[in-house]
Computed example of a mutant assay.
Amino acid sequence: MKIFKRALSMELMTSASAIFLIILGIVVAQRAGNIVRQVSKGILPNDAIGTILTFSLIKLMPMILSLAIFLSVLLTLTRWHRDSEMVIWFSAGLSLKQWLWPILRLVTPVILIITLLSLYVMPWATDKAEAYREQLKKRDELASISPGTFKESSNGERIYFVESFDKLGYEVKNIFAQTRQDNKTGIITANRGSRYQAENGDHFLVLHHGQRYETQPNVLEISTTEFERYEIRIETKESAPEPITTQAKSTYDLLTDPSQADHAEFQWRLAIPISATILVLMAIPLSFVNPRAGRSLNIMSALLIFIVYNNILSIFQAWLSQGKINPWIGLWPVHGCFVLLTVYLYYRRQHLQPLVPQLFNRFFRKP
């Protein structure tokens, strides 16, 4: 039995690490693509990609770890079934239930990490991400410009285009700016420029060796001016601080004078490690391989169960935040249903027959 446990430990750790890296790579690619798309549209500055991506990964880390340990247990035991190693286990007089403690001992540290991330680290990352986005909103017009894209000012009176910045963002090259003022449209171009801060705190963009073209509606004449130095005042953004969201509150704040939304958020944070534990236990009977079925059937079933479980939890969380469910009930009915499903799977694998038909025959068969 010690040989089985040692082999299980090594293979489970190896598969969990590989699956975690694969899922992490998929999530990074998906989130990075979404953030880059926002940068290309001018919604976010290009220097914010790394920070926002890091906070997003920290927020998703509990779910990534939950899915990783669930699939690792499932795939490891599935291979043991397929290679007839489980037959040796059962031939030694050991049952399927005796896999519980070895697997639980292996995944308990991961469950504790998921609990820590869900209760403390995830709200901290959400709070920092929201604070960082607020900071981006208050940045001036030039700081929010991405090289190679057109950017409109907040008041709609200016449009900027900059080909490139230096590393510190103070020197710009090949600038295009369009301004609207006093019913006049001005177009300014310059080969290079720089920014500086005046004594009163105002920021200016200084253009060197450029041209300015000015037009008026219904007037065919175009005024052209060449300049050695031209200053444009950069507008700063003022925005009122937004209230902290429920997702960004600490767990301690959720428990002190909680609202319906606070109850829902706290139970969602608890649901992540609880669901991870239930899914790991469910993976043991779910790993049984039917030789007539395809090899990918177990993986498809596991992904479907994971998606359905989390979606139902999200629905109950929304109902709880809306006051449609009592906080004492909360998300526990969802956990209870999947616990019953796990018990049913254990019974079915232990007796090699479905539970429902057996009960039907017992209570409804003719005398």
Rank of each mutant, 00 (worst) to 15 (best):
T14H: 04
L74G: 04
S250Y: 14
I26T: 04
R180L: 10
Q135Y: 10
I26K: 01
E163G: 13
Q211F: 15
I52S: 05
T215K: 13
R229N: 05
Q30W: 11
W332Y: 15
F70T: 10
P109D: 04
L270E: 05
H208V: 07
G148V: 12
R31S: 08
K59T: 07
V27H: 04
F150D: 12
Y230P: 02
K324R: 14
E157W: 06
A125T: 11
S146T: 15
G330Y: 12
Q216R: 15
P273W: 08
F90K: 13
G169K: 12
V339E: 07
L341P: 03
K41V: 08
S164V: 14
G210Y: 06
E235F: 02
E265G: 11
I159Y: 06
T185I: 08
S72I: 05
R349P: 01
F161P: 01
K366P: 00
S239H: 13
F161Q: 00
A293F: 03
P354Q: 02
Q30L: 13
E231L: 03
E11T: 00
S144M: 05
Q211T: 11
F176E: 06
I52A: 07
N311G: 10
L74K: 00
T54D: 08
G210H: 14
A261I: 13
V356K: 15
N326G: 06
Y252I: 12
S164K: 15
S296I: 07
S296V: 08
E11K: 02
N310M: 03
V334C: 07
I329N: 10
L94K: 04
K184H: 12
A32V: 01
N155K: 00
I284T: 05
K184W: 08
T179E: 01
T54M: 08
V36A: 07
Q317N: 09
I69S: 01
L94C: 05
T189K: 06
Q181P: 08
L75P: 01
K41M: 09
L74Y: 02
E171Q: 05
Y252A: 05
H209W: 13
S194F: 12
V28P: 03
P333A: 01
I3C: 10
K59N: 14
T78Q: 02
N310F: 00
S194G: 12
F306N: 02
N326A: 11
V206Y: 07
